[in-house]
Nucleic acid binder design. Sequence first.
DNA 1: GTCTATAAGGAGATAGAC
DNA 2: GTCTATCTCCTTATAGAC
Lengths: 203, 203
Amino acid sequence: MSIFGKLSFKDQAFKLREDSILDATTGILATKGFDLMTMDDVANLIGISKPSLYKHFKSKEDLVGSTMVRLLDGASYQLDQLPETLSAKEKLSALLEWALRVRLEGGMPFLPSTSAHVREMLMRNLKYVGKVLKLNAKLEKLVQQAQKKDELNADLPSDVILYSYYARTCDPAVEYLQRFSKMNKDDIVKHMLQVCFDGLKNK
Amino acid sequence: MSIFGKLSFKDQAFKLREDSILDATTGILATKGFDLMTMDDVANLIGISKPSLYKHFKSKEDLVGSTMVRLLDGASYQLDQLPETLSAKEKLSALLEWALRVRLEGGMPFLPSTSAHVREMLMRNLKYVGKVLKLNAKLEKLVQQAQKKDELNADLPSDVILYSYYARTCDPAVEYLQRFSKMNKDDIVKHMLQVCFDGLKNK
DNA sequence: GTCTATAAGGAGATAGAC
DNA sequence: GTCTATCTCCTTATAGAC
């Protein structure tokens, strides 16, 4: 009994440390990106040594994969939490809003759009691929529902809408607005959502 | 006279080689990105040795800067060539179309949006910065003209439109469509333009 | 499990021969 | 001006002491 308790506590502590490693990784990935993030960066940020870091994650690839998996879990959770009363388009909008706010708080985009290198690496991660496919299927369905109900443009191919939707989650305009305009976060989100669904042209 | 001729010929050959180096760099940047592009990649692709490459460009930073400057020159040239009969919005659309086609042909986006690291590097390049500011001023003016004539949404802040416009020139949806859909280039361009100006929602 | 120290390899940049 | 060979630094990853 006391052994179980001890193990459980140890496991908890281990899990907590892993979470803090993932937090650090998320922040560094958001600012420096994959290629420039070093294992030293991560270890130094949380005050452990590099070998200790490797006790938790067996490689940089593993560490980043785990980080992305956690992010995907967050997105899926958000999507599942949305009230059923929302329309398909409203759900898509709400999830995009969540993703934009995550980024504005120092998180990172959950699409590895930036680099073919990173994309290929993640595609070797079965856990990641599984979760991506599952989330993708849900979003694909939402897009098609929204098109059927004329909430989204039914003249556009579904994949054009879906890929453009993904692209908006990592739209660099967000960083530019955050850096160069005096706009607050709420206004940035509001405008990004409007641009996504209504476009740049006059209504 | 013959000396002048010889020098001029040498200069021409030099210029030609430099152009082919920039071509190679453009292609590699488009596929691998800055961080993963090595000077060996560039040298090998055009069949010269690395030291020869360094005779033309004194560093990787210099090489990439020169490549971006040439790309900016191309964009400015395109913009200046557009007939004066086009409206401000039509000019913006035509330039975006040009940028998308450049990317579909294996070129690269002309916004270093992907990486803060690359952006900072380019900002140290005075020639690059000068040309960016000049092009940016022209585009800013076009955006404001289009808003005044109600071709673009006047309710949106100008910088939201401008940054979103830049973002569309490097929209990752283009690569996804090119890779995963059977769509031809003309259709990709058409849809990307529509999504940019009209958004995802039903009209 | 944590650290110090280090191996192994990659990539920017250059020396020096031709 | 071009190449072969090399320097130097950085980064991933691990060996081995405690």
